[in-house]
C-alpha cells in the first residue's frame, strides 16, 4: 500500500500533503497541550512497533503471506490522533531510510495509512466493542475494525492512483504516472486487500488485542471511557453499511451506473475494435471491464470521466467522514447523557 514516488503526479502529491498537514498539525498540538510528555515515548513505541509489524509476514490459509500495518492496533491503545502521529513517523522513516514509499508521496501514504486507517478503525472499534466487557468481543471488534480500516485505506490508495491517467498525460495521450484508471486500480487493490491484507490486519489486530488483554489489562482500563454502545443490532447494521462502503467500487463499476461507460458496450463505442480475450469472464467476475482505455485523452468523454471520478472521490470521502463524525457525536451524546 506504500505508494512510491513516480506513481503520483506532483499535483496529487501536493494535494495530499495539504490534506494531511492540518491533521498532523492538530495531532502534534494535541500532544503538546492536552497530553503530558508521557505520550512522546509511547507514540514512538507504537511507531516502531508498526514499522516492525510491517515486516512480519503472516501466513494465510491457502499459502499466501501478507503483512499488517498496525494502525488500528495503535489507534485502539493510543487514540486516533496519537496513532496518526505514530504511523506517520513510521512512514517517514520508511521513506527516508528504506525507500519504502516515496518522499513526495508521504502526504498521500500518510493520509491512507496514518489518517484514514486509525480514525476509521478507532471509531469502528469503539462502537463495535461498546461496553466491551468480554475480552473476546473486544478482540473481534478489533479484528473487524482492522479489516475494514485497511480496506478503506486500500480504496483511498486505489482512488489516488486511479485518477492519475485521466488527469495527467502528455499531448499524445501517454500516461505520465500510474497508467491504470480507476476501473483497474480499485478492483486490483481491493481484491488484494479484501482477500489477503485485510485478513492479515484483522488477525494481527485481533490476536494482539486479545493477547494484550491477558497480559496488559490496564491498557484497556486506562484507554477506557469506552461507553455503552448502541444496541447490537444497529451496531451490526452499521457494520454492514461500512462493509458496503468498502465494497462501493464494485457497485460503482457495475454496468448501468454512472460509471457504466466502462461496460462491455462501452469498449466497442470507444472504437477499440476488439474485445480482449477472456473479457467476458472478467466482466462477469466483478462486472468491470479491463480498463486503461480511459487513457486516450483526446476522447470527448475525458471531461465526463474526470467529473465522475472526482464525484466518486468526494462521495466516498464524504461518506467516510460523515460516518466518523456521526459515530463520534453519538458517542458524545451518550457520554453527556450519562454524566448529566
Amino acid at each position: 500500500m506504500h505508494i512510491p514516488d513516480g506513481y503520483l503526479s506532483p499535483a496529487t502529491a501536493a494535494a495530499m500533503y495539504t490534506v494531511s498537514l492540518p491533521v498532523w498539525y492538530l495531532a502534534s498540538r494535541k500532544m503538546t497541550t492536552r497530553l503530558t510528555g508521557r505520550s512522546v515515548p509511547l507514540i514512538g513505541l507504537f511507531a516502531a512497533l508498526s514499522f516492525v509489524i510491517m515486516m512480519f509476514n503472516v501466513p494465510l490459509p491457502g499459502g499466501t503471506t501478507g503483512h499488517a500495518v498496525g494502525s488500528v492496533l495503535a489507534a485502539i491503545v493510543l487514540g486516533p490522533w496519537a496513532a496518526s502521529l505514530a504511523i506517520t513517523v513510521a512512514l517517514i522513516i520508511q521513506a527516508f531510510f528504506f525507500g519504502d514509499g516515496g518522499i513526495l508521496a508521504i502526504g498521500a501514504n500518510a493520509f491512507n495509512m496514518a489518517i484514514a486507517m486509525p480514525f476509521v478503525g478507532f471509531y469502528l472499534y469503539r462502537w463495535l466493542s461498546g461496553g466491551a466487557v468480554t475480552p473476546s468481543r473486544r478482540a473481534i471488534a478489533a479484528a473487524v475494525a482492522g479489516y475494514l480500516a485497511i480496506n478503506v485505506g486500500a480504496l483511498l490508495t486505489a482512488i489516488e492512483l486511479g485518477i492519475q491517467p485521466m488527469l495527467f498525460h502528455d499531448a499524445a495521450g501517454h500516461a505520465l504516472y500510474f497508467p491504470y484508471g480507476l476501473g483497474m486500480a480499485i478492483p486490483a487493490m481491493l481484491l488484494g486487500h479484501l482477500a489477503v491484507a485485510g485478513p492479515v490486519e484483522a488477525l494481527v489486530t485481533g490476536l494482539v488485542v486479545s493477547w494484550m488483554q491477558r497480559t496488559n489489562p490496564q491498557l484497556f482500563e486506562t484507554a477506557g471511557g469506552v461507553t455503552q454502545g448502541a444496541t447490537g443490532l444497529s451496531r451490526w447494521a452499521w457494520t454492514g453499511l461500512l462493509s458496503l462502503i468498502a465494497l462501493t467500487p464494485f457497485g460503482l463499476l457495475a454496468p448501468g451506473t454512472a460509471w457504466g461507460e466502462w461496460s462491455r458496450e462501452g469498449l466497442q463505442q470507444l472504437g477499440l475494435g476488439y474485445i480482449p480475450e477472456g473479457f467476458d469472464q472478467w466482466s462477469n467476475l466483478w462486472s468491470a471491464p479491463f480498463s486503461g482505455y480511459d487513457i486516450p485523452a483526446l476522447n470527448n468523454s475525458t471531461v465526463g470521466y474526470l467529473l465522475s471520478a472526482l464525484a466518486g472521490v468526494v462521495l466516498i470521502l464524504g461518506v467516510i467522514f460523515a460516518l466518523t463524525w456521526f459515530i463520534g457525536r453519538l458517542r458524545h451524546r451518550r457520554e453527556d447523557g450519562r454524566t448529566g
Binding site: 510528555g37 515515548p41 509511547l42 513505541l45 516492525v52 509489524i53 494481527v204 494482539v208 486479545s210 497480559t215
Partner: peptide, 27 residues
Amino acid sequence: GAENRRWLAASIGTLFTKSYALSDDVY
C-alpha cells in the same frame, strides 16, 4: 498455519509488552 499465526501474535505481543515497559522507563 494456525500455530504459526498464534506464535506470531504472541511474539508481537511480547515485543509490545517488553517495549511498553521500556518506553515507560525511558520516559
